[in-house]
Design a protein around this nucleic acid. Structure first.
Lengths: 372, 372
DNA sequence: GAGTGGTTCTGAATCGATAAAGAAGCCAAG
DNA sequence: CTTGGCTTCTTTATCGATTCAGAACCACTC
């Protein structure tokens, strides 16, 4: 046993090429070989060349990144955490747009991106604990247990969209206000039978509220939403819709409300149910564009004319919204990404954690009109 | 100096909590604390609890991932390398679709995804050298210098689309054949004035051929394309178009050919020039859907009717192709991702490197018709 | 000839964990 | 009684690099 192991060790020692292997071969110190790779100015060009030659000869794959990271204490990578499966995130134009922006600043500073999704409970927790990164970007993780997991790493963090965690830099828009504008606009057109399709995270297990994460001064809900709505991704938006109804005297109880995941396909089902209601709603407010597309799909399928018989509003203004003629709330998707990236990469430690609220505005297109 | 340093060291030693800190505090060995985190079954539940308590108390962020990775020799992450800036990759439905598939299998096995782009020469090289990963997926890196950089790491690699590198697992489709079908179809409709818009990588520096990377038996070009086309991303597709023209007796010299990056916006410029030709082409073959959209944009802008006055064909069948009515080549985008992922994560080392060729077929929609 | 200042290279001390083998204690079976 | 086997923990030896202080040498200057 022991002998076998020694043999194995010897073997692997022979097979594995490290800085030391090269150093021994040439007769210089390990440090010098290290310098040849990382600080070429620290040794004579002649020796450096010789080292490189031997490295090539021994098929040395370059300084081991894990060892380097351990010693340097810096990974050059930031983690981006989604609370859904990554395969869903990549299907969501909003998430992809955000990543675009984030990637732009990350790349410029030679920083890598480590994407982490939440395919099922437990997996991501481990991945987050094992991620060799210098910081995390939490993408719209409202109320999700992963927030705790990430915070525990004690690395720099920036949260996007929700929730606002005291002490953690934040990037978002005034969701509640924007949502109110949407509802107010529809009410202003004369709609009274309005249905709402809200987004909920695709969590596969019930989402538990953590006291420290819901102290969000901007979005705190003083309205009485059912418990299941209090911590979904669309909480603030729901509150905004509620605000408008209150203001315009539309009873919140009369507003049909469905929840669906942020997925066109899945949203169709919810839309189907809403359009089955009698009397049929004259307008549907979707908490995201993706959901709005699902609603439009079903309407088209049933021959319901938009906007003649049904108005539809989305949220986000993803690229596909314009060709589809969807009235929606435009928000600077990509800019959110760049901002988040800068917040994470900037060397200066802001003392009061910055809370960046970006602009938004209602973009009116062909999908809305006064009720029939 | 020395004293200052000692001070600093002492300070950081005090501030930094490691397994040892916890071990000392409780009076057990470091290994036991390590086990408390990584192999809970190796110690008494009682002690484990106590360790966890102290860890909490000291605000221990968990075992350091870099150290862990170094010792274990396994990162649990795969690198995905693009030869364009990541911000472009995220704008490209094809790339995003691929990532979707890749993410699906990666997530299932608890593997993280480290995305690496090529924003400008030099940056990515360093990121690749420093990436703490167990393998790389090269996304359509034909002829790109990054291929060498990645191979040098001596880690498992899988190449997607191009090039086929001997000894490296490969996933792709029969591009040349598919491209030929496209051109044959248009020629069959009666088109003789056909223009081609090819894709080229967004490399910011000239792409150098490496002998070991172009020995691709399936795609080797025996046709005489100008040098600049020999190693672009669309090399095989160009060859296919060429094949068809040859077969149908259309002189290749008479086929106007433009190169553009795979970006709708940028493709518009190339399209503009092609549609200025007199006599105007009756059909445009775009090497990707994204480019095809650019062509359609310009046509719409100039009031050129599709397909009445102009037929347009794309390649890839990205999600937006269907609503746009674009005739194109469908290929299993997401399945490519899952296949690539499996090839990379599968424990078995296939001896002859697997070379997976996936299905494709021509999808005929509203954008093509016989010439006027 | 002592002092000054640069290069170029070395040695020792880490970075923070895990693997492998071994020791101590305990219980049941032979 | 002792052998074997299990559980629970410890010891020792790495994993592969980088940092930092200092040595050796060279050239110049005053």
């Amino acid at each position: 046993m022991s002998r076998l192991n020694q043999f194995r060790n010897r073997l692997s020692r022979v097979e594995r090429v490290t800085l030391q292997t090269i150093a021994d071969r040439i007769g210089v110190s390990r440090t010098t070989v290290s310098n040849a790779f990382s600080r070429p100015d620290q040794l004579k060009e002649e020796l450096r060349q010789r080292i490189m030659e031997v490295a090539e000869e021994l098929d040395y794959p370059g300084p081991n990144p894990a060892a380097r990271t351990l010693r340097r204490g810096r990974a050059g990578v930031i983690g981006v955490v989604f609370t859904e499966a990554l395969s869903y995130a990549f299907a969501d134009s909003y998430a992809v747009g955000f990543l675009r922006g984030l990637a732009r600043v990350a790349e410029q500073s030679g920083t890598g991106l480590h994407l982490i999704g939440w395919p099922s409970p437990g997996v991501a927790e481990e991945v987050i604990g094992d991620a060799v990164v210098d910081g995390f970007c939490l993408f719209s993780p409202e109320g999700h247990p992963l927030v705790e997991t990430v915070l525990r790493r004690r690395l720099p963090v920036v949260t996007v969209d929700h929730p606002y965690v005291p002490g953690v830099p934040f990037v978002g828009i005034e969701d509640r206000l924007a949502a109110r504008e949407v509802a107010t606009y529809l009410l202003g057109l004369g709609h009274r039978r309005i249905a709402i399709v809200a987004a909920r995270p695709m969590a596969a297990q019930p989402i538990v509220a953590r006291p420290r994460m819901i102290q969000d001064p901007a979005d705190w809900l003083d309205v009485d939403l059912s418990e299941e709505h209090r911590f979904g991704a669309g909480r603030a938006r729901l509150a905004g819709y509620h605000d408008a109804c209150l203001e315009e005297g539309l009873a919140w109880e009369d507003v049909p409300l469905h929840r669906t995941t942020n997925d066109r396909e899945i949203a169709r089902r919810a839309a189907g149910q809403l359009l089955d209601l009698r009397p049929r709603p004259t307008a549907v407010i979707a908490a995201t564009d993706e959901i709005a597309f699902g609603v439009m799909d079903v309407a088209a399928q049933r021959g319901i004319d938009i906007p003649g018989e049904l108005s539809v509003v989305g949220f986000d203004d993803v690229p596909a919204a314009e060709p589809a003629g969807l009235t929606t709330v435009r928000q600077p998707i990509t800019a959110k990404g760049t901002t988040a990236g800068r917040l994470l990469l900037e060397p200066s430690r802001h003392d009061p954690a910055p809370c960046v609220l970006m602009d938004h505005h209602l973009v009116i297109r062909r999908s809305t009109a006064p009720p029939p």
